[in-house]
Design a protein around this nucleic acid. Structure first.
Lengths: 137, 137
DNA sequence: TTAAGTGTACCATGCGACATAATACAGTGT
DNA sequence: ACACTGTATTATGTCGCATGGTACACTTAA
């Protein structure tokens, strides 16, 4: 379910946040579906429960999940996240800094442009495959 | 010359690295032009000389500058910049997942395409402005 | 030769974010 | 009652970063 990179400069709880966001945004975790409990996920990932809790708390603060005391943590409505200005702004900022980094690495505009078109093409193809795959369910 | 943000999550030596790369790639620092000495820049930025040296060492490792003992640190030929494959792969992966998330958030290909072109335009404009700004020194 | 400036190499110290460990409390469901 | 859930707290250790200080070798100019 999760892929942690302990060597990453991204901290563990940040990785949990981002990967959980992905599961929610992509709909793999459907609305109101229960997330693994703090202790459960901590065992799966072999990390400290406090670390998982820190991630869950932040996910709730950002509106990706809601929690019920004694019950657990659940995926929030995607509608709350969709077209969420904060989420979009965050992604845009990520794109901006990434492009800048590529420029720092000596990439020309044309090179970056070509790379972006390739990636966008990949993304669209992936989307098409998902649609086709879901047709015969 | 430099703009440090002490509150940034980017460390000081990383900021020095990136801004120096910017100066070199934009041609503001021309080939074989001398960089401020370690001690000099440390006084300008009011940071520790060790911090500046750490940045310079990394810049040399990546091929952006070359150093001559006793003389100083000089801007290398942009052609000599070593393309860090690992860094490129990392950035590409970041782009890939970010595009994917935008798609999940309901963005169409055209919307993403437009956004990317805008950002790329911004990036290039920023580079151009830096070049122009350095003309009248 | 001397002095000042250059890069370079250490080592010790402090700080803050992160992760861990252990414990405790309150709410929910069986 | 019991076993789950989330939540909160405190203490401890680690690591990267930045600092302060010292030292050495090299180059250039006085």
């Amino acid at each position: 379910m999760f892929q942690l990179d302990l060597k990453s400069r991204e901290s563990i709880y940040e990785q949990i946040i981002n990967q959980m966001k992905e599961l929610i945004i992509t709909g793999i975790l459907k609305e109101d579906e229960k997330l693994p409990s703090v202790r459960e996920l901590s065992k799966i990932l072999t990390v400290n429960p406090n670390t998982v809790q820190k991630a869950y708390r932040e996910l709730e603060r950002q509106g990706y999940v809601y929690t019920v005391a004694g019950l657990g943590c659940f995926a929030a409505s995607i509608a709350d996240v969709k077209r969420d200005e904060a989420a979009i702004a965050q992604l845009t900022e990520t794109l901006r800094t990434t492009l800048r980094q590529l420029t720092y690495l000596g990439f020309s505009k044309d090179e970056i442009d070509a790379l972006l078109m390739t990636l966008l093409q990949e993304d669209q193809q992936k989307t098409e495959e998902l649609k086709k795959g879901s047709e015969h369910i």
